[in-house]
């Protein structure tokens, strides 16, 4: 799939934002007043910024409100609802913290759940797609969720939780990659099933339908070199999990260390997310002999 910057940005930052909100909803860290304001502002900036960024991907963003209508079938629609609900709930909850110094625990927990549900909905936009076997597995929601809570923990200064979650995340990411590599093949999609010509023999593309490019190829058929991907995987994994964990374990906790850990994690996550899209092969590629 085409690794569109707007989509990478959207998933990473909204994930982080909602992850942070989830922690804040649980009162971790237990902040009020100005400090709470800063935390909430950060979380909203990332969550809302991410959501806005996702509209850059739209052909007709002015009609975006319509996306709320189909929550019964569409994960994208559900994500919209959940995002709005969690932002609203967390706004009230946050206002209590910032302006009244009050923590409405019940509301906070509800906000946390909604935030996590939002991340889940985002993940299912991808995870539901049978057309992209690499995504179409439990690992996708799992990864998105652990990304959110892990990154959120890091941002929320929950060092122990962050260490545990980032280790988990690293492992999960590794599993997602390795199991993902086989998933297209295991799903049984081949040029032979795509064309139905299997009973005749082995199929290869002789001529593309158009010598010119098209939307499908640009959007869904993105080929990354195996070597290139390997290198990026190592770098991303190092950034999103290994280095931050080592940093947190080996150095005394502090703002600077935290900031560096967050930046490393973010860089690694952006890399991993780029790979998430770039390595994802859509079955339509089979029709173009691209697999």
């Amino acid at each position: 799939m085409h690794p569109a910057p707007s989509i990478i940005f959207f998933t990473v930052f909204s994930g982080l934002g909602f992850g942070l909100l989830a922690w804040l909803g649980l009162g971790l860290p237990d902040v009020t007043g100005w400090v709470a304001f800063v935390f909430f502002a950060l979380a909203y900036l990332m969550a809302v910024g991410g959501l806005i960024s996702s509209t850059f991907h739209l052909g007709n963003p002015q009609r975006a409100l319509r996306a709320f209508t189909q929550w019964r079938t569409s994960w994208l629609s559900r994500e919209g609802w959940l995002a709005v609900l969690s932002l609203l709930v967390m706004a009230v909850y946050g206002a209590g913290l910032v302006f009244l110094g009050e923590r409405w625990t019940g509301l906070g927990i509800l906000g946390s759940i909604l935030s996590l549900a939002t991340v889940y909905a985002t993940s299912m936009i991808y995870g539901q797609l049978k057309t992209v076997p690499r995504w179409n597995a439990w690992t996708t929601p799992a990864l998105f969720m652990v990304f959110a809570v892990g990154g959120g923990a890091l941002m929320a200064g929950q060092v122990t939780a962050a260490i545990i979650l980032l280790i988990l995340l690293g492992g999960l990411q590794y599993i997602a990659w390795t199991t993902g590599d086989a998933r297209f093949r295991d799903a049984g999609h081949t040029m032979e099933t795509a064309t139905g010509l299997g009973p005749v023999g082995k199929v290869r593309l002789l001529e593309s339908p158009h010598s010119g490019g098209n939307y499908l190829l640009r959007e869904m058929v993105h080929v990354v070199g195996r070597k290139h991907a390997r290198k990026l995987r190592i770098l991303s994994l190092t950034g999103l999990s290994i280095l931050p964990v080592l940093l947190l374990l080996l150095l005394p906790a502090g703002h600077i260390v935290g900031l560096i850990a967050v930046i490393l994690h973010l860089a690694g996550t952006l890399g991993a997310r780029w790979l998430f899209f770039a390595e994802a092969e859509h079955v339509v590629g089979l029709y173009y002999g691209k697999r």
């Binding site: 739209l58 052909g59 797609l129 939307y215 959007e219 079955v283 339509v284």
Partner: peptide, 24 residues
């Protein structure tokens, strides 16, 4: 009613949907 999110094209296994680049 279409916002041009492209998700339907992603969901189609057959490459049967194309997002018009002028109209979105």
């Amino acid at each position: 009613a279409c916002i041009g999110c492209g998700l339907c094209a992603w969901a189609c296994p057959y490459g049967a949907r194309e997002l018009d680049q002028a109209a979105g």
